[in-house]
Design a protein around this nucleic acid. Structure first.
Lengths: 153, 153
DNA sequence: ATTGAAATCCACTTGTA
DNA sequence: TACAAGTGGATTTCAAT
């Protein structure tokens, strides 16, 4: 991860569909060199994939929320099976196992408030390991699509 | 948004760097048709961008957390200025304005626990509008990179 | 590791239906 | 709106450094 790699990573976070020539031009290197760099980043797992960002409204997901969940017992078996269950639900954008008061934080995106309610009641609350949950509707969000590498110290 | 658009959106969420020819082949349409479809999706704002997904470890961000924040007064001015402040911090991945007990949910990614502590103490707690905050370190996470369009009803 | 050149492949436009 | 064909440009390979 030298400064050339960092620059590539930054450019590809901003626009993953830039041509290799364009990337090379911005870095001041030959296209063949650039291509080899990108391949290396992919091979080393630094670049995990390239994804289109889609407008949630176009996906008919007008309502988003976070659901904080507590489960018991907090064993690996229960955590893993609950993670698998949650990750398989089409309403779920992402799920986080967290420390602190809550055990899970689930980001969901659904059609409307009715469907959020249905999700909570029909999907989540059916699970016996859940001892409590609390949902927070999202009003606004800001996303940082380009993350820089932080300094070592 | 017919079924061709949905299929394209799905394919580009999975791999945004596929060639237009490859996309066309998978859909069974002509490359020129496919190209026009993608352009249309971009023009209509359905596709908001193409981004490389980067391994957080490679960005030297070994620790991630959610910080739930309460601010007062909860006026638009305060919300907007706090959003702008938070979105500008390099440690912040995303920020959500939410309903419920908390007002903000901030996803941060930093080098280590020391830097998380420094972020909370040196960056966040300086802001006078914050009346309380609570952070939850993330142990595991699962991300759904391909989101389908949900049914109308 | 980086490059330039050659060959293959693709994006993009045009013309047609 | 969809397609086929053509051209200019891009990707990719490879030999050399």
């Amino acid at each position: 991860m030298d400064e050339l790699d960092s620059a590539l990573v930054q450019l590809l976070q901003r626009d993953a569909r830039q041509t290799n020539r364009e990337l090379a031009r911005q870095l001041g290197i030959a296209p063949s060199t650039c291509l080899e760099r990108v391949r290396s980043l992919e091979r080393r797992g630094v670049i995990r994939g390239y994804h289109a960002e889609i407008d949630t409204a176009a996906l008919n997901r007008g309502v988003q929320a976070f659901v904080a969940v507590q489960i018991r017992p907090l064993s690996r078996t229960v955590i893993d099976s609950f993670t698998e269950f949650v990750a398989g639900l089409p309403q779920v954008v992402s799920a986080f196992v967290v420390a602190g008061g809550d055990d899970f934080l689930i980001h969901v995106a659904v059609q409307d408030l009715d469907h959020l309610h249905a999700f909570l009641v029909d999907r989540l609350s059916r699970r016996r390991e859940i001892i409590s949950y609390r949902s927070s509707v999202i009003y606004q969000q800001a996303h940082n699509t380009v993350l820089a590498a932080l300094d070592e110290p």
